[in-house]
Computed example of a mutant assay.
Amino acid sequence: MNDWRLRKSSQGQLALYKGDTLVADRVMPVLAFPFSAPEESISIVDEYSKEMAWLESFEDLDPESQALVNEYLAVREFRPTVLRITSVSTYSTPSIWTLETDKGLCKFELPSDESIRRLGGQRLVLTHANGMQFIVEDLFALDKRSRQILARFMA
Rank of each mutant, 00 (worst) to 15 (best):
N2T: 14
N2I: 09
D3F: 10
D3Y: 08
L6P: 07
L6G: 05
K8I: 11
S10H: 06
S10V: 13
Q11H: 13
G12H: 06
Q13P: 04
L14K: 00
L14Q: 09
A15V: 03
Y17S: 01
K18R: 15
K18T: 05
D20N: 15
T21P: 00
L22F: 04
L22G: 06
V23M: 12
A24L: 04
R26H: 11
R26Q: 11
M28N: 10
M28V: 12
M28D: 10
P29K: 07
V30R: 10
V30Q: 09
P34R: 01
A37N: 05
S41N: 13
S41R: 13
I42E: 00
I42L: 15
S43D: 14
S43N: 14
E47V: 05
E47L: 09
Y48L: 12
K50E: 13
K50W: 09
M52Q: 15
A53D: 03
W54N: 06
E56Y: 07
S57P: 08
S57E: 09
E59D: 14
L61Q: 01
L61T: 02
L61V: 03
D62Y: 05
P63V: 12
L68S: 06
N70S: 11
N70P: 02
N70G: 13
L73Q: 15
A74V: 01
V75T: 14
R76C: 05
R76P: 00
E77T: 14
T81Q: 13
V82K: 00
L83D: 02
R84G: 08
T86I: 04
S89Q: 02
T90S: 15
T90M: 03
T93W: 04
S95T: 15
S95C: 14
I96S: 12
W97F: 11
W97P: 08
W97H: 01
T98W: 09
T98C: 07
E100G: 05
D102G: 06
G104T: 13
L105M: 06
E109T: 15
L110A: 02
L110I: 07
P111I: 06
R118N: 10
L119E: 07
G120R: 03
G120N: 04
V125I: 13
L126I: 08
H128T: 03
N130W: 02
G131C: 01
G131R: 00
G131D: 06
M132D: 13
M132L: 08
M132P: 00
Q133E: 15
F134C: 04
I135C: 00
E137D: 14
D138M: 04
F140P: 05
A141K: 12
L142T: 10
L142P: 02
L142W: 06
S146P: 06
R147Q: 15
Q148V: 12
Q148F: 13
I149S: 05
I149Y: 12
R152Y: 09
F153C: 00
